[in-house]
């Protein structure tokens, strides 16, 4: 199980462009990947509905988890997206 906890740097949080880019990237992966807020239940990173409903704000931490081939690389890429300020 690969796991990362990252801070969301986008000013609008994980909404709009960052959310769409995040979900699109996750959806291309053949393995399951989730995100969660501290103490919250994990939701699928491949669902724009789930990601928007999670309502991650600027400065909040999220934990990404994935298992399987390419998990580390996938989490690297997703971490990079949420670390972008735009």
């Amino acid at each position: 199980m690969a796991e990362r906890t990252v801070r969301v740097e986008s000013e609008v949080g994980l909404h709009a462009r960052p959310a769409a880019t995040f979900v699109q990237t996750a959806s291309k992966a053949p393995i399951d990947v989730t995100l969660s807020k501290a103490g919250g239940a994990p939701v699928s990173a491949k669902s724009i509905l789930a990601v928007l409903a999670l309502d991650v704000r600027h400065g909040e931490q999220i934990t990404l988890r994935a298992e399987g081939e390419g998990a580390e690389e996938l989490l690297d890429e997703l971490s990079r997206i949420v670390s972008e300020t735009k």
């Binding site: 709009a16 462009r17 769409a20 880019t21 699109q24 724009i48």
Partner: peptide, 11 residues
């Protein structure tokens, strides 16, 4: 006038 919507990235 926003590619995220225009390219149907959101859906």
């Amino acid at each position: 006038p926003d590619p995220v919507f225009a390219q149907a990235m959101v859906g």
